[in-house]
């Protein structure tokens, strides 16, 4: 299987005054094409540092990081920007959508920084991405006209629009209620089944169960890296009790039935 991410003896150290904090202490792993990996760990485990390096926002102090065959360690700041633009799709906990800007324009954003994409193609790809996340009918809504789950879908569409080799999600369900979280996880599973490689950083075990492999970090070391039996988020969603105040159409139906 094609290797998307290859990490070798990765170290990351921070100088805090006179002390040196060793956030990552020489970890190694690979992520292959089509994998759905959750990266888990408590705060202080080095999880965020790893995420920054995986996302090419930060560079390792020692060791090598290859994304899609490219060694990141020696790249300049501008070259890292290009890698982020072409190879990675970010999904954040707090969506990070531009306010007072339509969903479509939010999704177009990464392509604005890509010269090879014409404005027609940009629009077309943004519409496709929004269709993939099921928001084709909400294209011209601004973030404050969308629910949390919908906003996160827009963010996922934005991450998909540059056709990245890997989606990198940082606590992508952290701001959502259980039902919406499951919906988002179901969307991720759907994208994964179509071949998208996904790295999902979370500290919630009940979200990690929807992925196919878990890398557990503790104190800058990998303590566990194993394939797990994937649960279907769609099935989990169906098992959730129907809440009247949550889904208004169901509520109305109940009223009619009564």
């Amino acid at each position: 299987m094609e290797t998307i991410i290859k990490i070798e003896k990765l170290h990351r150290e921070f100088k805090m005054g006179s002390e040196t904090v060793r956030a990552l202490k020489g970890i190694s792993f690979e992520i292959h094409k089509g994998e759905f990996v959750s990266i888990m760990g408590t705060s202080g485990s080095g999880k965020s540092t790893l995420l920054n390096i995986l996302g090419c926002l930060d560079k390792p102090s020692a060791g090598d990081y290859f994304i899609d065959g490219i060694s990141v360690s020696k790249l300049s700041r501008d070259e890292l920007s290009t890698i982020r633009n072409r190879k990675i799709g970010f999904v954040f906990q707090s969506y990070n959508l531009l306010p007072r800007t339509s969903a479509l324009e939010n999704v177009e954003l990464p392509l604005l920084y890509n010269n090879t994409v014409s404005s027609d193609e940009r629009r077309e790809r943004a519409i496709n991405a929004l269709t993939q996340v099921g928001l084709a009918d909400r294209m011209h809504h601004t973030p404050n006209q969308l629910s949390g789950g919908q906003q996160q879908r827009v963010a996922i569409a934005r991450a998909l629009v540059n056709d990245p080799v890997m989606l990198l999600a940082d606590e992508a369900t952290g701001n959502l209620d259980t039902r919406t979280s499951y919906e988002i996880m179901s969307l991720f599973q759907e994208l994964n089944s179509k071949g998208k490689t996904i790295a999902f950083v979370t500290h919630e075990p009940d979200i990690a169960i929807f992925t196919s492999r878990t890398i557990m970090l503790r104190d800058g070391n990998i303590v566990k890296d194993e394939g797990i039996k994937t649960l279907s988020a769609r099935a989990a969603l169906d098992k959730l009790p129907v809440s009247e105040d949550y889904d208004i159409t169901v509520g109305i139906q109940n009223e009619i039935e009564n």
Partner: peptide, 16 residues
Amino acid sequence: TREIGLRMAVGAKNKD
């Protein structure tokens, strides 16, 4: 600041 961070994350260079 966050908007700037996001733009950088999706590929904006410093000069952009």
